[in-house]
Nucleic acid binder design. Structure first.
Length: 814
RNA sequence: GCCCGGGUGGCGGAAUAGGUAGACGCAAGGGACUUAAAAUCCCUCGGAGGUUUCUCCGUGCCGGUUCGAAUCCGGCCCCGGGCACCA
């Protein structure tokens, strides 16, 4: 064993050994319990950033721990390699997206290897590989035939100068990021996946996802947003205007109706009125994001059109309002200013009538400041007077249903998934447009539809649109001339099923084979909290699509989910624009992989954000050097003698107890809580205690050997290189990755005495040591006997003594 | 705006089920070793007072429940994540 700790040399040597022995390549073994550990794969942006290092270190620690626990562990890695940045690089630096992406992957793969992650690299995949995306094209054509795919128009952000569709992040303050021109909403035909057909299942199964954080389940629950309500028909001329409401009990308080600017009624009304047309045009200058919609000033105009109240027949004004969403419900709402806050504010602004119909069960109804949005009892509602809100909900719904003016239904906030992107660097949507047959899916034997890689970014929009060799084709049905779809898939499509493909990435005949049945579901999924809704919901949806295609047999893809917090520098997210990034590569070069991994796991528990510190990482390096030195010193005295448990001094027994208490603590922290920071702190305390021991007796050295071996094994998942080196120096042949996790010796844990805290009226007044098996009255007696306790108890009446076994005594005095 | 988190020393954090607030580490200060520096080792380290043994205050702010609250409840402030075309 080298006297000095030299991480560069040691890590290179051990990594080479892992590679040569194929240490982390795994295959199905039905006799062993499998464990599939997956970290969210990266977008190959060029360099690993600290968020990746954190994510992948957490995953690697869990994977290595499970391996030491005897599981057959699959931990794969791949590349989410389609997306916007590659196109931006192409435009800015004249590099082809394919080449840019492949170069980035090569560099980042080397970085991951340098960090020593225990990946099965034989399963590596990249989503931009036609052998990967062909299977989502194939599945899409199946879904097309099942009617789970459809085409309709929806709104996009349009940059009128660059003549291109903008992503929400490319819209800055309502303007295009490059051109600076105000964005316009534009209706574009898009392909949709019917995720709403699975809304009920996606919602119901959240209850069963016990291994998911409560926050993520709540967010998805709210996102799906199930609500029970009524579609109500208002008569407008000869037409019927449908509005959805969750509060039919307030129907008698409706004083106007509001429609979205894109609503057919609004568009028709605008044909007659320049003012209405001007308002609708203005509304087109709000970006399509919901945040933009919600924070803009709420405005509206009266169309002059009247809608007849379905019960009273009263003629209510129809307004166009910029906050009514065409994508939600029917694009029209009934407005009840007395009982809806937004309607209330709108009515105040435009002096529309406010008609209260629901009153609180006790107390007065006041509508000076705000609407009364709670449930209550009905008044001024004709035959419904006196009913509670819940009773009125049913009574009014039934009244409307009986007259053909309404129907009860369940509505979801969740919208169908638009998978079309007007971009180049993505998987082509496998559809062919024929003038006589319409949109036709590409037949299986013509898949994959390969994305051409030799394209020019000279013109605006997607280069695919200008590439005749791609666009021109023949109709698979009639054989006539036809054109290919030039939109590509949303990159969330690729990331919705990669976890499954890792089970059988080499199969060229089917999307998934029986190996998926062995490895799936993912036992532990690890990724950023920012993916709590979209990615994780789409992946759950896709899993069910694959299940219903017969490819998988169970319902949910990820049994346990760990959402890791962000890596911050100076309290802010690391980003190039803020100039506060720390390059992980520089840290690896300076300290080695183990130190970087140790600091990442020590600085904060995984779910919290992590504050990067250049000085604190030096502390991690210092600890590893101390650990190394302790082992060197121990070994310099030759081989340690065997342990004889019956011949230990009090101090030796105490140190040995600490060794085994450390195992107990680390088992809980690493195996159950995933609080690696406290596990590391516990091992640090053990190493500190061993360093202080200074016991050269035979049994002292035997305990040192036991302590070092234990420490090394407990840290092996976190710092695998140094652990391997020390473990073998301690006299073992095998690689530490093949050694089982240490066992607790229960006999070492016994104590004769325990420390109790004594409080008087809840304030700490003394600490006492009592025999472990002391009876309650003995404990009370010892507590009252304490000198300092007597100072606070003397001359006072003891009202109560609370004894919490093994913890404290609280004496309550008057 | 809406949904979901978080707020503890100079800093990162610990306190797992309501029971010793500040484990472990960083920084800082003092000391040892050294010609010197680095490295290493030892001591101190929430605030105020007393100065060995102790007291009061203290977990974003205000109030409540409890023998006992960082932890539970109500209200408020601030910071972060998501909001459907960033991934």
């Amino acid at each position: 064993m080298d006297n000095r700790y030299k991480p560069d040399e040691l890590e290179a040597r051990i990594q080479a050994e892992w590679e040569q022995t194929g240490a982390f390549a795994v295959s199905e073994d039905p006799r062993r319990e499998k464990f599939y550990c997956l970290s969210m794969f990266p977008y190959p942006s060029g360099n690993l950033h600290m968020g990746h290092v954190r994510n992948y270190t957490i995953g690697d620690v869990i994977a290595r721990y499970q391996r030491m626990r005897g599981r057959n562990v699959l931990q794969p890695m791949g590349w989410d390699s389609f997306g916007l940045p590659a196109e931006n690089a192409a435009i800015e630096n004249k590099v082809a997206p394919a080449k840019w992406t492949k170069d980035n992957i090569a560099y980042m793969r080397a970085q991951l290897k340098r960090l020593g992650f225990a990946y099965d690299w034989t399963r590596e995949l990249a989503t931009c590989d036609p052998e990967y995306y062909r299977w989502e094209q194939w599945l899409f054509t199946r879904l097309f035939k099942k009617g789970l795919v459809y085409r309709k128009t929806s709104m996009v952000n349009w940059d009128p100068v660059d003549q291109t569709v903008l992503a929400n992040e490319q819209v800055v303050d309502g303007k295009g990021w490059r051109s600076g021109a105000p964005v316009e909403r534009r209706a574009v035909p898009q392909w949709f996946l019917k995720i709403t057909a699975y809304a009920e299942e996606l919602l119901a199964e959240l209850e069963n996802l016990a291994g998911w954080p409560e926050a993520v389940r709540t967010m998805q629950h709210n996102w799906i947003g199930r609500s029970e309500g009524v579609d109500i028909e208002f008569q407008v001329g000869d037409e019927s205007l449908t509005v959805f409401t969750t509060r039919p009990d307030t129907l008698m308080g409706a004083t106007y109706v509001a429609v979205a600017p894109e609503h057919l009624l609004a568009i028709e009304a605008a044909e007659e009125s320049a003012a209405l047309k001007a308002f609708i045009d203005e509304c087109r200058n709000v970006p399509v994001s919901e945040a933009a919609m919600e924070t803009m000033e709420k405005r509206g105009v009266d169309t002059g059109i009247k809608a007849l109240h379905p019960i009273t027949g009263e003629a209510l004004p129809v307004w166009i309002a910029n906050f009514v969403l065409m994508i939600y419900g029917s694009g029209a709402v009934m407005s009840v200013p007395a009982h809806d806050q937004r309607d209330f504010e709108f009515a105040k602004k435009y002096q529309l009538p406010i008609r209260p119909v629901v009153y609180p069960l006790d107390g007065e109804l006041t509508l000076d400041e705000a609407a009364f949005t709670e449930k209550g009892v009905l008044r001024h509602s004709g035959e419904f007077d006196g009913l509670s809100s819940d009773e009125a909900f049913v009574a009014i719904a039934e009244y409307l249903e009986a007259r053909g003016k309404g129907r009860r239904l369940t509505h979801y906030r969740l919208r169908d998934w638009s998978v079309s992107r007007q971009r180049y660097w993505g998987a082509p949507i496998p559809i062919i447009y024929c003038s006589s047959c319409g949109g036709v899916p590409v037949p299986d034997d013509e898949l994959p539809v390969v994305l051409p890689e030799d394209v020019a970014f000279d013109e605006t929009g997607s280069p695919l649109k200008h590439l005749a060799s791609f666009v021109s084709t023949t109709c698979p049905e009639c054989g006539g001339p036809a054109e290919r779809e030039t939109d590509t898939f949303d990159t969330f499509v690729e990331s919705s099923w990669y976890y499954a493909r890792f089970a059988c990435p080499d199969n060229r005949d089917v999307m998934l084979d029986r190996r998926a049945g062995y490895w799936l579901p993912v036992d532990q999924y690890i990724g950023g909290i920012e993916h709590a809704i979209l990615h994780l919901l789409y992946a759950r949806f896709f899993h069910k699509l694959m299940r219903d295609e017969g490819l998988l047999k169970f319902d949910e893809p990820f049994t346990n989910l760990l959402t890791q917090g962000m890596v911050l520098k100076d309290g802010a997210k690391m980003s190039k624009s803020k100039g506060n990034t720390v390059d992980p590569q520089a840290m690896i070069d300076q300290y080695g992989a183990d130190t970087v991994r140790l600091f990442m796991m020590f600085a904060a528990p995984p779910e919290q954000s992590l504050e990067w510190s250049d000085t604190a990482i030096a502390g991690a390096a210092r600890f590893l050097r101390r650990f190394w030195k302790l082992a060197v010193n121990h070994l310099s005295n030759g081989k340690a003698p065997g342990l004889n448990k019956s011949r230990l001094t009090v101090a030796q027994r105490a140190l040995r107890r600490q060794i085994h208490e450390t195992i107990v603590k680390v088992n809980d922290d690493v195996g159950r809580r995933y609080t690696f920071n406290t596990a590391i702190a516990e091992v640090m305390e053990l190493i500190n205690a061993l360093s202080r021991a200074q016991d050269d007796s035979a049994q002292g050295r035997a305990i040192m050997q036991e302590g070092l071996e234990t420490g090394v094994l407990l840290l092996a998942p976190i710092v695998p290189h140094i652990s391997d080196a020390i473990y073998r120096a301690l006299g073992h042949e095998e690689m530490v990755i093949n050694v089982p996790w240490p066992e607790v010796d229960k006999s070492a844990l016994t104590r004769e005495e325990i420390l109790l805290v004594v409080q008087v009226n809840g304030k700490l007044r003394a600490r006492i040591t009592v025999p472990t098996d002391a009876r309650r009255d003995e404990v009370e007696e010892a507590a009252l006997a304490d000198v300092n306790v007597q100072r606070f108890v003397a001359n006072k009446e003891v009202q109560k003594v609370v004894v919490v076994p093994g913890r404290l005594v609280n004496i309550v005095v008057s």
